[in-house]
Design a binder for these strands. Structure first.
Lengths: 356, 356
DNA sequence: CTGAAAGCGCTTACAG
DNA sequence: CTGAAAGCGCTTACAG
């Protein structure tokens, strides 16, 4: 190499205001852009000494590759989309925090995309979102994860995705994070059986929701296994809303009263609380109530609500981690199991069982 | 132009699988890429006929410009960041929905970024986020919007931002969306005065939060204007948590009891509810309670809670809209005013005033 | 009003 | 293990 003039300034660093680019790093390190690129992308085809020298330089300069330029060259962005369909606020936020746990310092960012699954152009809307932004991957949150339409569309356009689902389902293309809602409901049944309840009622979620079906089946089967068959008159379909909990509570408490009511989510349990309060019933003495979600509400109600905790943040973390790991990763399905949190809304029944 | 071979296929459309690019559109329309670019960017320097022809073609082909390529060329992405610091879940979600309302079909997307304002590297973390992603703009949500550190950093790196703030503050560089928490608290005072309450207590938020200070001042000033000076013993500082509401309720109801308690958010009001229930007090007969936020909780509690509605979604919408509009827009500050929702937790005091 | 050239900061495909 | 050339899909700066 021909001798250069001794530099007056301490080497040609990138200009003050502007961020360093791969060209700056290459020049400063005395290697080609391609070598720097290999290091950015963790290619093994770089000598150790070269790698370490360049990495030290990148750290010193505070270099970070431009995701826009990388995305353009890769034909794929560094964005993970989260698609959800209006569940409760706490659930969405927990899921976001979980995904962000996995994405932190990874160079990926989380883009949120609510949608209305019932709307006919939901699939088209998500497709446009994914294709236009060239998303790296998509997390499908219940209830957007239910039904196969979105998953099939994502498969068709070759987009990675992870689905949080209440129960295992058929999916050849995406990752599944199964939350086993059925097990949580069965645990509720076990708790009520252990307390000695025989006069038990159930407020379900909307039959269109897979989670609702799972909770219903898990609960009824476990009760039946414990020798209690719940009559149809004590099974009321709600829609996960507070109001539907109120309505169900009014119906159930107007008849021969059960000693315990399992509500398929906390909001509906709050509705039952309201009816019980108006009827001057004491929870848990006159009535045991159980919810599902372990939302903040569960601790805020009085008495505090026995409920099923879902580990939502953990589900979100696993989903996001699966999307940013190597595609050849060998874990198509993960399990996150719920568990019962016993609080003050459940106790032994006061009244003797009506039969026997 | 020299004669071309008659095309066997109906013109050289972009290949089946791949999305059309600006080059395809230019070729198909018989104009230069630059002209298409002008149309994408709404430049007036295009003849109307040309514009309409090209727009029709873009629609027909389903062309949408690649945000990665545009971002690289513009040195700025089409992403709006939302920075928040752990307020309640419903508040975050409402804010996100609001921002998304404004961003829908705009080509911009929303990237969420929680941060811990108390952490010393919060500012650095947000700076890295903004610079690495070359964000188009940032929405600062309370409490991340309080304090000048983040705003000053964003100004320094020349990043557009909009701040949702509880009260007007000094800010030369960003947009302000002022929620006037003070007015909401004053309205609560007016409501309690109108009902005839004179024995009134206040549970404040943490003194470090601007929203808490605003609500406290608004409430105390309006009560004073109505002739009621609240003694210091009836002003308890909470931290917006349920537990702090319980603690405040226990303190307040152990002394000479007030006939009304204004809690600076709904969660703390739920804490007071719990204490009242344990003490077998009837709300609102024995005690009126008012919250702030009008969260879903307000409707779920029994009796339903009188509270202040904040129009959070609207705030988020205005903030996002301000960021994607022309920079020369003449509206540095917008106002979103809260208003009181009267429900079942407030009534006239039962007892005669202690003093005449 | 319109366009040809160069460039944004990376990566792929190829060559050594 | 390393690099020079071409390209990803746009825009800027310049010229007409």
């Amino acid at each position: 190499m021909p001798a250069r003039k001794p530099p007056a300034a301490p080497a040609p660093r990138p200009a003050a205001g502007k961020a360093a680019t791969i060209t700056d790093i290459a020049r400063l390190a005395g290697v080609s852009k391609k070598t720097v690129s290999r290091i950015i992308n963790h290619s093994p085809l770089v000598r150790k000494g070269t790698r370490e020298k360049v990495q030290a330089l990148m750290r010193e300069v505070g270099y970070a590759p431009d995701p826009l330029a990388r995305g353009l060259a890769f034909r794929r962005s560094f964005l993970i989309g989260m698609v959800f369909d209006n569940p409760t606020a706490q659930y969405i936020v927990d899921m976001q925090y979980g995904a962000l746990d996995a994405l932190r310092d990874s160079g990926y960012e989380l883009v949120v995309h609510p949608c209305d699954t019932r709307s006919p152009d939901c699939v088209d809307s998500v497709r446009r979102f994914v294709q236009q932004q060239k998303l790296h991957g998509v997390i499908l949150v219940p209830r957007a994860s239910e039904g196969q339409a979105l998953a099939e569309m994502l498969t068709a356009i070759n987009c990675n995705y992870a689905r949080i689902v209440p129960a295992d389902c058929d999916d050849q293309a995406g990752r599944l994070i199964v939350t086993h809602d059925r097990d949580g409901a069965a645990e509720v049944a076990g708790h009520l059986l252990a307390l000695g309840h025989t006069e038990v009622a159930l407020v379900t979620g909307p039959s269109s929701a897979r989670s609702a079906a799972e909770r219903t089946e898990g609960f009824l089967q476990a009760m039946a296994a414990g020798g209690i068959d719940i009559p149809a008159s004590r099974i009321i379909e709600g829609d996960y809303s507070f109001e539907s909990g109120v309505a169900a509570g009014e119906t159930l408490l107007a008849r021969r009263r059960p000693t315990a009511i399992f509500c398929s989510n906390d909001e509906m349990a709050a509705g039952v609380y309201k009816v019980a309060a108006r009827a001057r019933m004491n929870i848990p003495r006159d009535l045991s109530v159980v919810g599902f979600d372990d939302s903040p509400l569960a601790s805020l109600l009085w008495p505090s609500l026995t409920s099923v905790r879902r580990h939502t943040r953990e589900s979100g973390r696993i989903a996001a981690a699966a999307l940013i790991r190597a595609e050849s990763d060998p874990l198509p399905v993960a399990s996150v199991r719920p568990h019962l949190i016993v609080r003050d809304s459940t106790a032994e029944p006061l009244r003797a069982p009506a039969s026997a």
